[in-house]
């Protein structure tokens, strides 16, 4: 992407007008750290959306609302009851990048190695999009394919709502990398809802080794109604991931990527179980 001009609107409406009028020649920019990965050399105008009050984390009934331009470092530093999302940001890129990279920037254009979509899918987040009206979209629908498809008319992602974790819920997250700043080889995330040691509900997601961050419904179904224990996790994962075209990155083979995915998913389920037990 070749930035040739730069505008800084003061309101969401002004930004939307710019983006609408510029069409493919405009690009919303917050931290700008992902521009490096957009290899297209066509000239574009950057529409800076960082001065419109879209940053910050607030408690809302049933969860938290995170502004789209909230830097990852702020999310990493945030602490609250029944909140675990900071753990995800802690493992993302470098501190310098986290200071400027934003939540919205990470999930409006999703790269295969993206970590946040995996966690948000597991957490059952809701996306808040401002078009002519504000609409809310489930993360399942939002991440069905490249989210950039949703913003062609100048619409903007303005916030993400992350549900609070209930008392019998546990969150597990794991990312495999080569070096601390490396992109994900495999990312897994899971939220388990337990009752009397039995999985009542499960949301399990994977990325990195998957072609696109995705939910794993077959794993979830295999977990539900069964005891939350290691053997059950292993068999649910073993039976539920072979329909994915696992992709080895950074020199790993596809076969190994599938193996790694299996191990990581079992690990995140174990972590979710531990999380739930510790909070119950």
């Amino acid at each position: 992407m070749k930035l040739c001009d730069f505008v800084r609107p003061r309101s969401i409406e002004e930004a939307r007008r710019y983006l609408h009028d510029l069409g493919p020649g405009g690009i919303p920019i917050a931290g700008g750290t992902a521009l490096h990965f957009l290899l297209d050399e066509k000239p574009v105008t950057a529409v800076d959306i960082t001065r419109m009050g879209l940053d910050g984390i607030t408690e809302i009934p049933g969860g938290y609302r995170i502004g789209a331009t909230t830097p990852l470092a702020d999310i990493q530093a945030y602490r609250a009851e029944r909140w675990a999302f900071h753990e995800v940001c802690r493992r993302l890129a470098t501190h310098q990048v986290r200071n400027i990279s934003t939540l919205g920037g990470n999930i409006c254009r999703v790269f295969p190695w993206a970590d946040l979509p995996v966690a948000l899918i597991a957490l059952n987040a809701t996306m808040v999009i401002r078009g002519d009206h504000e609409i809310k979209m489930s993360c399942d629908e939002y991440f069905q394919s490249q989210p950039a498809r949703l913003f062609k008319n100048g619409d903007l992602l303005v916030a993400v709502e992350v549900p609070a974790l209930g008392p019998h819920m546990g969150f597990g997250y794991k990312k495999e990398v080569k070096t601390s700043k490396g992109f994900s080889l495999m990312t897994g995330a899971a939220v388990l809802t337990l009752k009397d040691g039995v999985v009542q509900n499960a949301r399990v997601a994977a990325g990195g080794a998957a072609p696109f961050p995705c939910r794993l419904p077959r794993v979830e179904e295999a977990l539900k109604g069964n005891k939350a224990e290691s053997e059950g996790f292993k068999s649910a994962v073993a039976s539920g991931i072979d329909n994915i075209n696992w992709k080895g990155r950074e020199g790993l083979t596809d076969d190994y990527a599938q193996h790694l995915a299996g191990v990581v998913l079992c690990d995140v389920l174990e972590r979710a179980l531990t999380f739930a037990k510790e909070r119950s």
Partner: peptide, 13 residues
């Protein structure tokens, strides 16, 4: 993998 993004060297972290 001719970039520091894909050729992985250790850093202080």
């Amino acid at each position: 993998n001719a970039s520091l993004q894909h050729y992985h060297i250790f850093s202080l972290r």
